[in-house]
Design a protein around this nucleic acid. Sequence first.
DNA 1: ATGTACCTTACGACCGTTCGTTAGTAAGGG
DNA 2: CCCTTACTAACGAACGGTCGTAAGGTACAT
Lengths: 193, 193
Amino acid sequence: MKSDQIKTVALKYFTIHGYEGASLSQIAEEVGMKKQSIYAHFKGKDDLFLQVLHDAKENELSATRQYFNSLNSYNPKEDLYGFLRFVINLFQKSEQLKFWLRMSFFPPAHLAKEIEAEAVDIDEVVHELLENKFQTWLDASLLVGFSARTLTLAFLGVVDSIYLELVYGNDEKRLEEKLEASWKIYWKGISQR
Amino acid sequence: MKSDQIKTVALKYFTIHGYEGASLSQIAEEVGMKKQSIYAHFKGKDDLFLQVLHDAKENELSATRQYFNSLNSYNPKEDLYGFLRFVINLFQKSEQLKFWLRMSFFPPAHLAKEIEAEAVDIDEVVHELLENKFQTWLDASLLVGFSARTLTLAFLGVVDSIYLELVYGNDEKRLEEKLEASWKIYWKGISQR
DNA sequence: ATGTACCTTACGACCGTTCGTTAGTAAGGG
DNA sequence: CCCTTACTAACGAACGGTCGTAAGGTACAT
């Protein structure tokens, strides 16, 4: 499908150069067509962008849901650490997560409303999935001492720091070291009684 | 000074719209001049950008150094939490930190090298200031159980998560809640023996 | 005091280029 | 026959940047 090919290349350019810096002619050239031909597949730059955005969101959401479905529910240490590994893997496997992060943090002004709506949506889903997991662990007394909400928010903080390191992302060794440090102290903080 | 005024407005536009999305004519209009007049103060867009970048870096560096100089050295809990508060305050007081974060994570491609050099510089300074502090606390047995490096990296992770929340930044209440959760668990993790 | 030279700052006009977008048209498949 | 896809051609608008020029201030010699 040509339109998928266009979206793939567009994702790359939006990710590297941002919305304003990505030009249709460059995208078209990499696909192997003239920029006017893009208009046979999309209404315009905004339409292309929003479709790329929507796809990225859908993929991230379904991948996240899939990870949570694969958990055994009774090993918080393994499942939480696994989620961090899952995030890193997801980021490195496709450009969609990096695109997503760029656009949700620094959206093009005239599309900020639409982007924020999608961002809030995905945010709430992940938060809920995590908090429910924490609650089951609390109910089973596998964790104690903090509310499910506090555990979730702090864990999302660890995820955020991984995101930043990935986006910054030239130094694989640094990422590993930072992940291990954050995780070690987070786990010690929540596992001790 | 007119050139300072230009830099202030430019900082705002670079922060909101990115390098490519910020136009000299818009900046000039807000300053109250024509875009050609900007060339009486700067060699071009790149020059203006790099000067704004340099100023932002200098200010952030000196503010950070100032904070560390004000510490009493023997109250890790207060000093560390104070640093998180300091970061939040710094972010909200000026646009420079947000500008800095945007440009170090998503630099314009043709200036990536220069930006990265400055970013690495500031990064190393902050890291060193923090790790030295942790080492003095370890030497005084105010903390135990982790290396200064691990403590530093994990704490920088907490700072990162604050950065993200600030950049994302529409929800003050969420920021507070997340800060408290991350801090509570981080402190528990490093203070317990 | 006055004229002269120079520098800074600003502006109108305009450069070439690229932007996103539209119109018209031809080829090909169902 | 129509619908999709791709093309050439061209559009107005905006981009960053360069000209020449003019106003204002300062410095200095006359």
